[in-house]
């Protein structure tokens, strides 16, 4: 016959193992903070290309329409994306090692699928509309689809990700209602919010 403490231990251990089996807990909050920093630097570069010396809050339609400018913007965006993804991968791998698990498991596969469906559809939609000249779609659509992806993916990882997702959706919709302020909303959504939620995750789960 088992002792009562053993039964209590059983209950605690199955809670932990259930959580570990469905949630990807190696996701690094610190990498969220760094992605936010990259996005803010990227936004500053875009600002200097597009608006300087105007103040970005001033309402004016200043669209990126010259070929060279669009190319420069794409290079900045791609660099931010690649830097963020590689930092996320590297730091999550480090955290996985610390937690004594691997980065590619059942939970992370589920997370990947959940993220990729909204991200790929949103990405394709943005590219299609960009080709047709709807430059204004980029900021609101990227925020909304990124938010949907996070909200969907959050069931396989920390709950903070869900709230980050909902925040991104709200920002994206507000951004769509206020044309001309895309860059500012983009900087808040991908820069500031990543730093805020990334720090919360870091302080809650990584220290």
């Amino acid at each position: 016959m088992k002792e009562l403490q053993d039964y209590e231990k059983d209950l605690i251990s199955i809670r932990a193992i259930m959580e570990r089996s469905v949630k990807f807990l190696s996701l690094s909050g610190l990498s969220g903070v760094l992605s936010g920093v990259y996005a803010l630097i990227g936004s500053a570069i875009v600002y200097s290309i597009l608006y300087y010396p105007y103040f970005p809050i001033d309402f004016h339609f200043h669209y990126a329409d010259e070929r060279t400018v669009v190319d420069q913007l794409l290079i900045v965006a791609a660099s931010v994306l690649i830097l963020s993804l590689s930092t996320g991968y590297f730091l999550s791998m480090r955290k996985a090692k610390k937690l004594n698990t691997t980065i590619w498991n059942t939970a992370s596969k589920q997370l990947f699928i959940d993220l990729m469906i909204p991200l790929a559809s949103g990405g394709l939609l943005i590219v299609i509309l960009l080709v047709q000249g709807y430059y204004g779609i980029v900021a609101p659509a990227s925020l909304v689809f990124y938010g949907l992806a996070l909200q969907q993916g959050s069931r396989s990882t920390y709950t903070e990700v869900k709230y980050l997702g909902l925040t991104e959706i709200a920002l994206g919709l507000t951004c769509a209602a206020l044309p001309g302020y895309g860059l500012i909303f983009w900087a808040i959504g991908f820069g500031v919010m990543h730093i805020v939620y990334g720090s919360v995750m870091y302080f809650r789960h990584e220290r």
């Binding site: 059983d10 251990s13 199955i14 193992i17 259930m18 089996s21 469905v22 698990t101 498991n105 059942t106």
Partner: peptide, 24 residues
């Protein structure tokens, strides 16, 4: 305890394979 843990993983997931279970 180990069997209880295995069952709990299979309760939380539709299905789980041997190697993933071993690692977990």
């Amino acid at each position: 305890s180990a069997r209880l843990q295995i069952m709990s993983v299979l309760m939380a997931n539709d299905s789980f394979d041997f190697n993933a279970l071993k690692e977990l």
